Structure formats: structure tokens, C-alpha cells
Simulated scan of single mutants.
Amino acid sequence: MTTARHYGMDWLRIGAFALLILYHIGMYFVPWHWHVKIDPTIDWVAIPMLATNGWRLPLLFLVSGYASAALFGKLGGAGAFVRSRSARLLIPLAFGIVVVIPPQPWIELMGQHGYAQGLLHFWTADYFRFGALDGIILPTWQHLWFVVYLWVYTMLAALLLAVVPVETRAKIADRAARWLGGWGLLIVPMLWWIAVYAVFPDHDETHALFDDGPSHLHYLMAFGIGWLLRVRPLLFGAVARWWKAAAVLAVLAFLPVAWVEWNWPGDTVAPGWVFPPYHVARLVQGWAAIIAFAGIADRWWNRDHPWRATLAEAVFPFYIIHQTIIVVTGWYLKQAGAAALPSFVVLLAATVGGCWLFYAIGRSIGWLRPLIGLQRR
């Protein structure tokens, strides 16, 4: 494992979270179910959304695995790693669930279930019911499910690192690096995803942790390869050899996905024969895109910039607050009957501005820093 910082992976993490914010802005327009929607929704928006759907979350887990491995190497022990990760993830998770998230289910209940009470009444009387209200489980972690899953994955990694001797860990990492060297880094994870789909073809992600086993098999693989990229950086050689082919494969694999969405848009039900090749194409496109972006980051983005450290620090606070800003802003835009283009402009400006304000205030006040995912001064 090298101690050199890979700036390209920092930029990849920054870009992945920026894309996540844009994706959630898109959820206001696309026909899929969400907390608040423009009326009417726009079918064609699903196509650019699907272009990122297969890889945006696994990419986040991959860069998180890479960063987790770097932190473990810096701290030097499983105990310190567990304490550090738990503080950085569980404290903002609790703050998010209690303070940041409540406006989202409140707006969904008002807009889609006829809930008539104000936010304060909802927060004090209904939100902490630890049960369902019109089918919505409360309290909820909503988009912060990623933080929950990431904490679980890092705890599993810490457990393995604590019980497996160092020599054995080195042999496992060496063997995995040899196995994934060359074309293996492109093909083996792809085949793993396809095998998971073949065994669980009807599984839909729940983000509820305990009933989401196939999703864990999907995301843990990306997290593990991200970790391996850090501890065996020679794998970036395989990335360098294959990223251009992976980029072409990702574009080609997306064509049938876009074709299906174009022919059966919105709530139109496609015939049964469409689903297996559609899902396989999404999986192929997803992993190929991840390798392509890793190659681009390694080739072109592995350099520092005065803004890198600030942006790298800001992405977690941005992630915590962004969806609540989008949902609240979207609710008022819908009440005003705003058209699609001005709605997008307002949503983008409000989200970026609100996220920067949340980050700027939180980072400047010592006791707020841990609540928004920042280290204490």
C-alpha cells in the first residue's frame, strides 16, 4: 500500500456526489415515485437519469471503500478505525434523522396522502411514532440510507481486519489483485452483478438494511474493490489498460436501456421478455462506466488544486442537506405552478446555495461540525 494521495480519487468522489445532487433534482421531473413531483411529469427525463442509474451509487461505494482503506492505514488499527468511522458517520446520521429529514415525509404526506397538520405538529406528534403513517415508516433515514450501509460495510471490514492475521490479509489481497489484474477487473465484477441478478431477479432495493440482501451483494463488491485499489494500487495499471474499452462498452450497453425506456415510457408496462436483457445491459453499462471513470480520474485528474480540499470536505455536508432543500423547494414550486425550465433553474440555484450555506455555517461553529460530518477542530 502506498502512502501517496491519489487526487484523482478525491475528484471522483467530489464528482460522484455532485452528480447525486443533480440526480435528485431530476427526481422532481421524472415519472418515478418520489416525495414531490412536477405536474405533469416529463417522460423523456428518465433517459438521462437511467444513463447514470446503473453506476452512480456503486461508484460512491467504490470511492468510499478506497477512502476507508486509506483511513485504516493511517490509523493503524481496527479499534481506532471503528471509533473514527462511527463518530464521522453515526453522529451526522442521527442529526439528519432527527433534524434534517422530517420535512421530506411531511411534504410527501401532505401532497400524496392528504395530511393536514403543520411541520411542527408532525415533528412533535407523528414523526417519532416508530411505526407507519399511511404506509410511510417513521422516523426515517430517507436518502441517508447510504450512510447506514457505509457504516455497516466499514464495520464488517474492521471485523475482518481485526480477526484475520496481517500475513493472511496480505496473501488474500495479493491473490485478489492477481485475479482482477488485466481483463479481470472489467469482467469479474460484471459477472458477479449478473449472477446476483440471476439469483434474485425480482428484488427491488428497499434501503431498509435488513431486507436488502441482494443490494448488499451488489454494493459490497464495489466497496471491496475500492478498498483493494488502495491497498494494491498496481490495479490502477489494469484500469489504465481497460478504461477506454470500458467507456465504449458502457455507451453500447446503454443503447438497449434507452431503447426500452423510449418505447415503453413512464408507467407503460413493457412485455416480460424485455426485462432480463434490460437489466443485464444496465449491469454491464454500470460496471463498465465505473472502470471508465476510474481510468479518467487516474489519467487526467490525479493532480491537486486549491479548491480540492474544500470541496472534498464539503461533499458530506452537501449530501446530508441537499435532498431536503430539493423537496422543500420543489413543494413550493409545485404550489406556484412553475414550468419545468424555471423550476430546474430555481431548484439548482436553491440547492447549491443552500448546501454552501449549510456547510459554511456548520464548519464555522465548533459544536456543529460533528453534526454535519466534519472533524472537530
Rank of each mutant, 00 (worst) to 15 (best):
R129V: 13
L180Y: 10
I187H: 04
G337C: 12
V269M: 10
L341K: 04
S68L: 07
V163P: 03
W367G: 05
A222L: 05
G15A: 04
A247G: 06
L93Y: 06
G182I: 08
W32T: 11
W145G: 12
P103F: 11
W242G: 12
A173E: 15
I365K: 09
P317Y: 11
H6A: 12
A339D: 14
Q112N: 12
G286V: 12
P58M: 09
L209E: 02
W141Q: 05
W55P: 07
I321L: 09
P58H: 10
A350Q: 11
A338D: 03
L90H: 05
I290M: 05
V260I: 01
V63D: 00
L57T: 13
L138R: 09
D212Q: 05
Y219T: 03
A349I: 14
V352I: 15
W243E: 04
R303Y: 07
Q142D: 14
Q142N: 13
D267L: 13
I325N: 05
R308L: 15
I14C: 00
A340Q: 06
D212K: 05
L255Y: 03
D10A: 03
P214C: 08
D134E: 05
I290L: 01
L374C: 08
A338L: 15
V284E: 07
W34C: 04
L160F: 13
G73R: 02
A339G: 13
W356Q: 08
D211F: 04
A222G: 06
M221D: 12
G184N: 09
I194A: 02
A250W: 08
T268P: 02
T206Q: 15
W179D: 03
W243T: 11
A340W: 14
V328T: 13
P139Q: 10
H216L: 12
L252W: 02
L71G: 03
V98I: 15
R369S: 07
L217Q: 07
A247M: 06
G373D: 06
I225F: 08
I321C: 09
T41V: 13
G362I: 09
A87M: 13
Y149T: 00
H113N: 10
A270L: 02
G373C: 03
M1S: 09
A125C: 09
I14A: 01
